[in-house]
Computed example of a mutant assay.
Amino acid sequence: MCKMSFKKETPLANAAFWAARKGNLALLQLLLNSGRVDVDCKDSTGASALMVASYAGHMDCVRELVLQGADINLQRESGSTALFFAAQQGHNDIVRFLFEFGASTEFTTQDGGSALLAASQYGHYRAVETLLKNGANIHDQLCDGATSLFLAAQGGYVDVVRLLLTSGARANQPRQDGTTPLWIAAQVGHSEVVRVLLLRGADRDAARIDGTTALFKAATKGFSEVIEELLKFSPSLNILKNGSSVLHAAVLSGNLRSVRLLLEAGADPMLKNKVNELPADLTKNERILRLLRNKDKLGLL
C-alpha cells in the first residue's frame, strides 16, 4: 500500500508542508493565518498538509488544520486520506480525532487499501480497535483478495489477529490465489498465529491453487514449531505435491526436528517419491539420514 511523498509546489505551500511534517505549529499557524496558503493546498501527488501531519503524527498540527477547515476526507490521487495515513502509521490519537470531525472509512486506494487494512498490515492494535469501533468494514479486501486478517497473519501480529477474529473476521477467507491466513502464517513461520487461527476454526488442510497446504509449506521451510502446532490438529500427512510428500519436503529442508515430528506423527516414508529413493547429496544433514535409516518401516536406504 502507499507511502507518503513530500513533493511541494509553491514556496509558501512548501513551507506549510514542511511545518506539517516537522510539527512546527507556530509556523503552520502563521502561514494559514496569512491568508496566502490554502488549508487544502496539495503537492504534485494530491497529498494535503493534513495528510502529511497525520502521517507524521503531529496532533497539534492536525488539530490546527482541521479547525481551520481542512477537508478531512480529501483523497490523494492514489485514493489515500488523512485517516489512511494516520492508521498506517499507528497514530491512534489522530485516528480518534479525525473520527470526531467526520472522517469516513469508506475511501480506498487504487489497490483496494483501506485504513483498516493499512493498520492491520503494520500491526497497530489500537488503531485497528478504533477503526472497528467507528464502522470500518472488517471484510475489506485488497484487489488481490487479501483481508485485514490475512495481512495481520502475514506480519505475525497475534494480538491484531485475535482482535479481528473476535470482531468477525473469517478465518478461512482466501486471497484470490487460494492463500489463506493460516497458509501465509505457516509460510512465514509465525507459530503463535498458526495456533490462534487453528483454535478459531482455520482449515488445517486448505490448499492454495498450486496444491500446497500450510503443513507442506512449513515442512519446506523447516519451521518445526509451526509443524508442531499443525500436527495438534491432525492434518493430512501423506498428501502429494508434484510427486513430493510433506516428509520429502521436510528432508530437503534439512531440519531434523521437522523430520522427526512428521515420522512420529505417522508420515509414510514409503510414499511416492519415497525418502529412501532420495540421493544422499540432497541433504548435508547426516543426522536426518541416520534417523531415516533407523525407521523400521523405511526399509533399505
Rank of each mutant, 00 (worst) to 15 (best):
D203Y: 06
R204Q: 14
Y122M: 08
L149G: 04
L32P: 08
Q154R: 07
M51S: 01
G23H: 09
E286L: 08
L282S: 09
G135S: 10
N294W: 02
S245K: 06
A70D: 13
I138G: 14
L298K: 05
S245C: 07
A280V: 02
A152Q: 10
G168V: 00
T10K: 13
S80K: 06
Q75W: 02
G123Y: 07
T220A: 12
N294Y: 03
A56V: 00
G189F: 01
S120K: 12
L163P: 09
G57E: 06
S120I: 03
F6S: 11
L198G: 08
G123W: 07
S54L: 09
I209C: 13
S54R: 06
A70V: 05
K232I: 04
I227Y: 06
G90R: 08
C61P: 00
M4W: 04
A219Y: 04
Q88T: 00
A103G: 00
T213W: 07
L151C: 00
L261R: 05
E192M: 05
W183H: 14
S78H: 08
G123I: 01
V95I: 03
G102D: 09
T45V: 03
R293V: 00
N92G: 02
L67H: 15
L278M: 15
A267S: 14
S114Y: 07
A169Y: 10
A218C: 07
H139G: 12
S224F: 08
L282I: 00
L27H: 05
T213N: 11
F85G: 00
D144P: 10
F6V: 05
L197T: 02
G201N: 12
A249R: 14
A115F: 04
M270V: 01
V95P: 06
L263R: 08
N14K: 13
G102Q: 06
L199I: 06
L98C: 08
V161M: 12
L247G: 00
P279F: 03
R208T: 11
E192R: 10
P269C: 06
V194M: 13
A86W: 01
E228C: 02
L151A: 01
G254L: 08
A185G: 02
F101V: 05
L291D: 10
T130A: 13
K284Q: 14
F85I: 00
S80P: 01
L165G: 10
Y125L: 15
F6Y: 15
A56F: 00
F101Q: 15
L237W: 11
P11D: 14
A87Y: 06
Q68D: 13
V259P: 05
V39M: 01
T166E: 15
H58G: 07
G266H: 00
N33S: 14
V193Y: 05
L65P: 12
L240D: 12
A86L: 09
R195A: 15
G178A: 10
V95M: 13
H248K: 07
C61F: 02
R21M: 11
L252E: 14
F216M: 13
L28I: 01
N73R: 07
F150L: 08
K217F: 01
K297I: 06
K284W: 04
S244V: 01
E9D: 13
V160Q: 14
N273Q: 12
V37I: 05
Q29N: 11
D43Q: 10
G79K: 02
L197K: 12
M270L: 15
E277Q: 14
A87C: 10
R208N: 08
Y125Q: 10
L263Y: 05
Q110V: 01
G243V: 03
